[in-house]
Design a protein around this nucleic acid. Structure first.
Length: 176
DNA sequence: GTTCTAGAAC
DNA sequence: GTTCTAGAAC
């Protein structure tokens, strides 16, 4: 089995589940990129945002609501982002629920950073609105995604730019 | 997605 | 000489 199916395996493992109902499963990200980093997965087998149709709107809404509720319970005074990666590496649709501190030893590369702080990160509410309005979720093209991941490193709070990841990581601790 | 590491960048 | 990133992994 390839690593691409790792999420599907995690979601089925009761030891890793922090929430489950008949529609969805929530697990902790194995390599959290912030203090709080959950993944919300539908039980229905859906690979990517491109496979979504209008009748998935309610599913996306409950994924959002449950993700937000679990996150709020865990850390009330920290702001939370909810969204999807435009081009995920792992199979099975997954909603990232992540605190905006980005203070984590697992956050190492420019790709990691830009996947959460540029339009590569598709806001959950925007995805839901897209789907309701047009029946599909708008996603940047493959080449746009590749460019987004190479965006110069910029602090998400004060827009200051940095030459490399260690300098950026040192800087964002000041915003904690 | 991560690990590992060669060689670029400093 | 050390730090940092980018690309292979069968």
């Amino acid at each position: 089995m390839s690593w691409k199916f790792g999420l599907l395996a995690s979601a089925k493992n009761p030891d890793l589940q922090i929430f489950t109902n008949d529609q969805i499963t929530v697990v902790k990200d194995m390599y959290p990129k912030a203090e709080l980093h959950y993944l919300v997965l539908p039980k229905e087998r859906i690979d990517t945002l491109k496979n979504l149709q209008k009748d998935h709107v309610n599913l996306l809404k409950s994924m959002h609501e449950i993700g937000l509720e679990l996150a709020s319970k865990k850390c009330q005074n920290r702001s939370i982002k909810l969204g999807y990666h435009a081009m995920p590496s792992m199979q099975q649709l997954h909603l990232h629920v992540i605190s905006e501190d980005f203070d984590s030893v697992c956050l190492k590369t420019a790709k990691h950073w830009n996947s959460f702080t540029t339009p590569f990160f598709i806001d959950s509410l925007r995805a839901i609105k897209d789907l309701e309005a047009t029946g599909r979720v708008m996603v940047p093209s493959t080449s746009e995604c590749q460019q987004l991941l190479k965006t110069k490193l910029k602090c998400h709070k004060c827009d200051e730019c940095f030459k490399n990841m260690p300098k950026l990581k040192m800087h964002i601790k000041q915003h904690l």
